[in-house]
Design a protein around this nucleic acid. Structure first.
Lengths: 147, 147
DNA sequence: CCAGCAAATGCAACAACTTGCAAGAGCGAG
DNA sequence: CTCGCTCTTGCAAGTTGTTGCATTTGCTGG
């Protein structure tokens, strides 16, 4: 089964119609294998299909996000980043100083979610969390600089 | 000392110049005592001073956020919400279903931050976290509905 | 009180989305 | 294979927020 056919199958299972626009967006994200901004996705899609409108890509990204096929994350104060969701959920530590993005295992986050559930009955949806802060290296550097 | 004078003093301490635009933004947020969207702040400010431009308000909100005088939070997928920061840091549980916003004590979050620090050396900045998920009531309701 | 520099502002253009509406296209029923 | 319902899409206009640049203005040192 080709990647395209897999995508089509996934779409159908999620209750979407199989359209070229959706397939192109999915392929772009799958092949990037990394975070892509909405703008990058638009560029990527248009390389293959210049006629696809921006609003379609935006709407598609929203729809895929709602279906949990891709994740939508806000790193700091810039644009929104989209990523193809593989099996495991994962999270990010984003350094506000140097911009470095580190991965964070699900375990710590799951423990946090459990506490929220126990204490507040709140069923947290921490599928893809971005935690802002200062990374180890920057902390060390600013200490060394006598801060 | 009037509220305005207090604000001016706070601004000076944070290294800002005291301008009417900044004071108006601060007063709007202080008196609201709640989350305000950027647009609401603009409206509020313009009620008193119609000449102040939008970009000034946006820039002021950004500057106050950087100085930790106000918090900037993204609830779900809408606009950004600003809030005057009183002493204690606090967090929110946002229900994706009914939109309810519940407060979350700092303790649980502080524990989470400590884990990040221990495990990754990452100095998380969880001054004002918004956790998406499903609140207790909606969980109950959807169970009752046979979901 | 005044001069001068840097911060702050207004304006206008730009970037990043969002939305209403009419036309087009999947896909299930027949 | 065809019809038709409904989901999708394109387009264009509207929000929301950002940025470059020229001008104004708070503040500090004479």
């Amino acid at each position: 089964m080709t990647s395209r056919e897999e995508s089509a199958e996934t779409l159908r299972r999620a209750g979407h119609r199989v359209t070229s626009a959706k397939l192109l967006v999915m392929e772009a994200l799958r092949h990037a294998g990394d975070h892509l901004s909405a703008t990058s996705v638009i560029d990527q899609v248009r390389r293959d299909a210049p006629h696809v409108s921006e609003s379609t890509v935006y709407r598609t990204l929203g729809a895929l996000r709602d279906s949990r096929l891709i994740s939508e994350t806000t790193f700091g104060h810039g644009e929104v980043a989209y990523e193809w969701l593989e099996e495991r959920s994962h999270h990010h530590l984003v350094c506000s100083q140097c911009g470095a993005v580190d991965e964070l295992s699900d375990e710590v986050v799951a423990g946090f979610a459990k506490q929220l559930s126990d204490a507040h009955g709140f069923n947290a949806d921490l599928q893809h969390l971005a935690v802002p802060g200062i990374c180890a290296r920057c902390s060390r550097d600013s200490e060394a600089a006598g801060e």
